[in-house]
Write a protein that binds this DNA or RNA. Structure first.
Lengths: 188, 188
DNA sequence: TCGTTCTATGCAACTCGTTGCATATCAAGA
DNA sequence: TCTTGATATGCAACGAGTTGCATAGAACGA
């Protein structure tokens, strides 16, 4: 249930509506957690009825009303309790690796385009993260010195950057391997 | 549904029972996919009734009978079809990163032990993978030259190694950051 | 001898996550 | 004018994944 906690953290950093949260999950929170808007709305409703969140209805002109959520006392306590519990070190779930091993029973060369596509996506994410880092942490307009919260946000972002960099390098390795074994016949 | 495909690949590499598959998922396949035995048994049953797998009952002495599964023709076709479809580049889901950002609203120093624990687990996984690499690919007893299937298994393992190495280095960074901001008061 | 671990399979209940669909208004462009 | 896209929220159904429990004999160590 880390989605609950990710939402609590995000709302502590800045209160907002379900729609706004969904957009944050496409951006900064997306470094380490993903969620669709349907999921978010459902969880927000549940957490509000459990008293973890407060809601404020904000009427808007020409747009549907917006419900701004913020963290209530019990929500803060729930987050603190979770922070003090140990969690399992998580493991990878990497479909592409399944495909790569599966390619031994098909045509390995046919995978090259797919791997190149993934390479592009991860390179773009890396660029995107680096741009965000310059804007918020290392560029000329960034605050200095950073406070504790910003330091923590920065180290999480560095994790996202390290992940994308590692992935891009590995995909280079995969491509080189596919080219090397290129003309090989599939295993029967 | 990549679990289905991971099972197909594993059974093509080597037919086996649900129990054996579960153990493989704790080892080599665990580099890129995890699954519990309950999940595996359920999926095996479904794939068998869909005609993707064949079963052979193997009676054993002093032990419950074993059901050895192998991939049938339609299973092979299903895998080939999936290999030719594009898949979404996946994103991270990292609870620990949620905790790190959440620590800004609690006591950052309290996270140090937790991060150290994760550091240990990932270091052990890295050692484990490196041992496997020496045994199967780079050590003196390893086959040389490798065939296409072994090359692909090796590049996937290199991915697991790169991931663990990157993670350990990032956790070092996280620890340094936590120590640096150590005495800071939590945000209110 | 007694508990634990390993082999081997499975059900039931539950939560989590995804997909498809639906509504409603405004702004911008073709 | 008509369509697309952004804002803003939501239901229903399904599929994936987790947790707890149950069975049962063999091997092994305390």
């Amino acid at each position: 249930m880390a989605l609950d906690h990710a939402i609590l953290v995000s709302l502590l950093e800045q209160p907002g509506s379900g729609y706004e949260l969904a957009r944050r999950f496409e951006r900064s929170i997306g470094y380490f957690w993903t969620a669709t808007h349907q999921q978010i709305y459902r969880v927000l409703k549940r957490m509000e009825s459990d008293g973890l969140l407060d809601v404020r209805d904000i009427p808007q002109q020409g747009r549907p009303d917006k419900k701004e959520y913020s963290v209530a006392g019990p929500g803060r306590d729930a987050l603190a309790a979770w922070l003090h519990e140990p969690i399992e070190p998580e493991s990878l779930r990497h479909d592409l690796a399944v495909k790569i091993r599966g390619a031994a029973f098909d045509d390995p060369a046919a995978l090259i385009r797919e791997v190149e596509r993934h390479h592009r996506v991860h390179s773009e994410r890396l660029e995107h993260y680096l741009t965000g880092e310059r804007r918020d942490f290392t560029g000329p307009g960034a605050p200095a010195p950073l406070d504790a919260g910003q330091e923590l946000q920065h180290v999480v972002l560095r994790g996202g950057i390290a992940y994308e960099r590692m992935t891009v390098a590995w995909l280079d390795d995969v491509l080189a391997t596919l080219h090397r074994i290129g003309p090989a016949a599939p295993r029967t």
